[in-house]
């Protein structure tokens, strides 16, 4: 199963990077969303997908799933939500101020400050 997951992760990262490199702001937001999903699954797969029981103590169970990746992912999920919200606002404010969502037209360099 790990092999399938590795390929899914690769596809998620690939799509995310492709979207992030495009010119449209909205596609970049979508890309960051996919990127965090990819990262979460990557952490999960690294820890291994075996184990028969969720990491909650129960009588007579010893084969728990690795809890550490789950703890890491849990914080990552919440943070990625915060970041997504932040990016959405950042982008639509940018769009409102510059009247464009074309990244190629948003170019900063030293001469403009």
């Amino acid at each position: 199963m790990e092999f399938v997951m590795a390929i899914v992760i690769g596809i998620l990262f690939m799509a995310a990077v492709y979207l992030i490199l495009s010119k449209s702001l909205l596609r970049i937001i979508l890309g960051t969303g996919l990127l965090s999903h990819g990262a979460h699954l990557l952490i999960l797969t690294m820890g291994g997908l075996g184990g028969t029981s969720p990491p909650v103590l129960a009588e007579g169970v010893t084969d728990y799933v690795d809890p550490l990746p789950q703890a890491l992912i849990l914080t990552a999920i919440v943070i990625s939500f915060g970041v997504t919200a932040f990016i959405i606002v950042l982008f639509y404010r940018t769009y409102a101020e510059h009247k464009t969502d074309n990244m190629n037209l948003m170019k900063g360099n030293d001469e403009h400050d």
């Binding site: 590795a6 390929i7 690769g10 690939m14 799509a15 995310a16 990077v17 990557l42």
Partner: peptide, 26 residues
Amino acid sequence: IAAAVGITMTLLALSAHSQKLIPSIS
């Protein structure tokens, strides 16, 4: 570039899963 990153991550996921240098604290 996207494909390169994607393939890298696939390789990384496989290697990271298969190799454990030190035992986990889990």
